[in-house]
Design a protein around this nucleic acid. Structure first.
Lengths: 199, 199, 199, 199
DNA sequence: TATGAATGAGCGTTCATTCAT
DNA sequence: AATGAATGAACGCTCATTCAT
């Protein structure tokens, strides 16, 4: 009846505590004992639920990465709707994700620490999915004029550029909504213009 | 001939070794002894030149970050010249930088390790400079039609987006030159279109 | 039908499981949880029957040591009978004991682990009993010619020597029956000769 | 110029300390920190000289086992000389060895703890050598009348029996010299008698 | 100046034991 | 009585840093 990872209350608490502690200090600085204390359990209890510090870290990352991807997918795949609004939504979703997960985002977005093959593959899949979703959006908008390859390049450009807008220089505060609009507008126009002329 | 950091031969060797070793394994996995061996000096010697592992890391990062910024500045600030070519150059420069510094780039760009205030400020300055340079390029291209703020948002979008194009999903190989062109084209058209209409 | 230790079914199961697990891995390597699983009971149940891992170990050792001594006593104390046959029986009994209890024997015989005073005293008693039994056999065989002290020295020599014959170098396989006969013959002749001449 | 293991003073100190601490408490109870303190060095220093607790233990055992075997070999292999004196010497050597190495002897004689293949093979070799030496002594004494196999069985019987005499029941005090003589006499007469009649 | 032997704080992990159910 | 989830003391090992040479 429960979800698939870290349930039974204690496991949930530990996973949440891990997210906070890893986010606050990074993988290597975080001590298992800190996570246990943050979760309000004994140190040994962590090992009842997770085989090692590394495994706990990976479980936590998988969960966060999934929560990010899941949040975007629903909106983007929904038929109909304005491309500009959808891309704006993607930006706003990234904003709230970053607001919620603070500096953990750096990890999810760019990979850190001791990350194993399983997680890398998972992250790669998520990225590919998001790129595909945005690319599909673009080809639907400029039908017939945009090769699959160009669409994916543009999608990658957009998704990464978004992070630059949302996290201005210092990555310490979030961008105002107008900035998002500006970026999305530049991008949408760029794609339309560029490929209509090409086509 | 002597600069302000890591000179006198030994210091230079250590700094270069640090770059290679930190890049290969990350800050926490890298052992001071490994760096000393890579540099061909004794372990104690590292501490003759750098106060601590952390300081060595910081010095190395500052140096690499500067080398990145310096390489772009000359080209971008040069008067005249095509905006498209300049942005393409920025992308190509990023490519060669990433090719040369391998996975150290991830750290410089996003994964901080134990980075202190001094380095964060330095990095912030570098980023701000680059944003300013690109923004200036944009306002010069669409004169009078682009506010300073919009120009900087667009510049941030471009610089971050570049990384997404250059490092495709897996971050394991670099993008082909055509992808760079596609991204730059989309961006340039987007900016032109968008703000000419606005203006 | 109930004895004084480890009864009531569950206790019996635990004691048997303890013997197998301790024998397989040694005291420190054996985990209480392993013993519980081997016994088919819960981990907590072990502590319903035994105060601690150490006490469980002690109880188990006492039981095994007793079973060894008991098996020999009947045969040796029986009046009449050939000394050679009785000593051969002692050797064969040691063989089957070792065959049955495998490497636990090493512990019982020589390697104590965390053995407390109670067990040491018990073991000392057992050894002394066996020495006395064999010594009595010898004095009965060469009546009047053998001092009590010499008889006990010879008995100790025999009992220990037996182990060397039964467990050849590697202690991994048991000796063939002929070797036992050879050893017993040497010993019996030695005692006869030696003390008949002395006498 | 130094010996082959644990030199350079510190290594020697650690090996000696290890012998004392392991002997006093056994492998599992001994803490690396205790050994370091006993040796008068820092905990980390132990790991400069030995890769792990286990390796330190094995090095120490190898050294002690060699010192035992070496001490006996010289005397036994020397041509000429009385068999009875040689076997007595073997017993006395065992006595002094046990006096010096206290309860560590149990380990050397019977093997405990985490002992790897290398050490087992080494110990097997030592045992085999000693058996062979004693067996050679016996065949030389009763020339032509004793098969190689019988001689080895007798030798094993003698060497193991010796331990029983030297370490009376409790293994807490050593046997008086007269007991040794008694045992050796019984054994020598037994071998002579037994095989002269057989032959 | 250059070195590397020596150090010990620090941490991941295990497992005997407890106790609420 | 029986259980097993929870606990934390304990310990092996690493590695940044120091300092005598």
């Amino acid at each position: 009846m429960e979800g698939s990872r870290g349930e039974g209350n204690k496991g949930r608490l530990i996973l949440d505590a891990a997210r906070r502690v890893f986010a606050a200090t990074g993988y290597y600085q975080a001590r298992v004992e800190d996570i246990a204390r943050e979760a309000g359990v004994g140190k040994g209890t962590v090992y009842e639920y997770f085989a090692s510090k590394e495994e706990l870290y990976l479980e936590m990352l998988l969960e966060v990465a999934d929560s990010y991807a899941t949040g975007v997918r629903g909106e983007l795949e929904e038929a109909g709707g304005n491309i500009r609004d959808k891309l704006l939504f993607t930006g706003r979703h990234l904003c709230s994700f970053l607001a919620e997960h603070g500096q953990l985002a750096r990890m999810v977005l760019q990979d850190p620490g001791p990350i194993n093959f399983k997680f890398k593959a998972h992250l790669r899949t998520i990225r590919r999915d998001m790129v595909k979703m945005v690319a599909a959006l673009l080809t639907a908008t400029v039908p017939g004029l945009l090769s699959q390859e160009d669409a994916e390049v543009a999608a990658r450009f957009f998704l990464a550029g978004l992070a630059g807008v949302v996290y201005p220089e210092t990555m310490q505060s979030l961008a105002p909504p107008e900035d998002l609009k500006t970026a999305v507008d530049v991008f949408v126009r760029g794609v339309s213009q560029c490929f209509q002329q090409k086509g």
